[in-house]
Design a protein around this nucleic acid. Sequence first.
DNA 1: GTCTATAGCTGGATAGAC
DNA 2: GTCTATCCAGCTATAGAC
Lengths: 221, 221
Amino acid sequence: MSADTRQRLLDGTLVAMREHGVAGISARTIAAAGGVNQALIFYHYGSVDELLTAACLVNTKERVDRYTERFAAVGSLRELLRVGRALHEEERRLGNVSILAQLLAAAQTDGKLAHATKAALALWIEQIEAVLQRLLAGAPFAEVADVPGLARAISAAFVGLELYEGVAEEDAQRALAALDQLAVLVEVVDELGPVSRRALRAKIGRASRTTTRVDRRAPRT
Amino acid sequence: MSADTRQRLLDGTLVAMREHGVAGISARTIAAAGGVNQALIFYHYGSVDELLTAACLVNTKERVDRYTERFAAVGSLRELLRVGRALHEEERRLGNVSILAQLLAAAQTDGKLAHATKAALALWIEQIEAVLQRLLAGAPFAEVADVPGLARAISAAFVGLELYEGVAEEDAQRALAALDQLAVLVEVVDELGPVSRRALRAKIGRASRTTTRVDRRAPRT
DNA sequence: GTCTATAGCTGGATAGAC
DNA sequence: GTCTATCCAGCTATAGAC
């Protein structure tokens, strides 16, 4: 059955990625991991690279879908972070190395992978941007915050943390926990009295204008 | 001349990494990039992996050394970020893909690389941690901040941003710029009046104590 | 659609001349 | 220390039987 084989190949790609990483992955390791004949990779996907990009997109899509409800239910920055940590933990518990992080590394020198990984990362960014937009609506910080930029920073930071955890689990956990402090900071600021808020607004506005020479349009992704 | 050959191999590794990435690097591409005979890799370093780890450590050390004075001169969080951006820009201008980010990806499935990349990343963390410790000394935020944790978060986030820039340059620049807003936030908070500071301190302390540990609640399905 | 078999390469690593 | 030559494992991709 064709659909089943394609699924096995996608699954096998994830398993092979976990066991061998980007540097060690190949048509043979993927086929073995998926219990599929090696030649079928080329029949169904044309090349290993195309299978990799497909797996990256499908996998990311699945993971994002699994978390959309939770993103929608997020009511504070710290809750957003909590969802991020839950996601992160689940990934590790399942034994998954982040295929997105792995492919992002490979994409540095491969145009085709670059396109696919950018698209996959965009799926996460989209979610986070929506949450931020909602959370910061009306908050003083939002008046000067570049929400799309922050969403991208958060997403990229997360990728870095996933890679970091691969080599130093406890340190990465600690780093993740420390981010909570920043989230608290934003919330605390947004709950300050009107006087402080006014002062803050002035300062932040001034500071931002002098340092963020970025246009405010949402980038096309 | 042995010393010269070893240097050529280290240089060649960086060039090859830029051109082929982790996934495509090999003894032959390294030797070609360094203008050195391929067999010398094994004579001098024993294996390709050992050359990779050596190159990663040496390269990181060099880069960290190039920036120690600047780190020492940093007087605010936003200046720290500015140094980070300068570093980042220089890297790109030189055409360097971050060898550290690349190897971190490969290290996910390779214990030996994991050790070396952790050590290399630790060199950056050390710098950033020192700066944070100095900057936040006496500030209200410092009373509840986990400085080592934040230093690790910042370093890991930077790795993620370097990878992100490889596939979406403008978006990554924007993300980097957005981080400035968070730095401003910390500084603004630290410049608040005594009344606000007291309130903030109470709130942040309370918030941190309840959330710095990993949340173990089972995810809802 | 799936299999076997294999062509044609490139990979890490070594032996041995110089 | 550096070179050439080479072994052989593993790679992508295809041809052709079923």
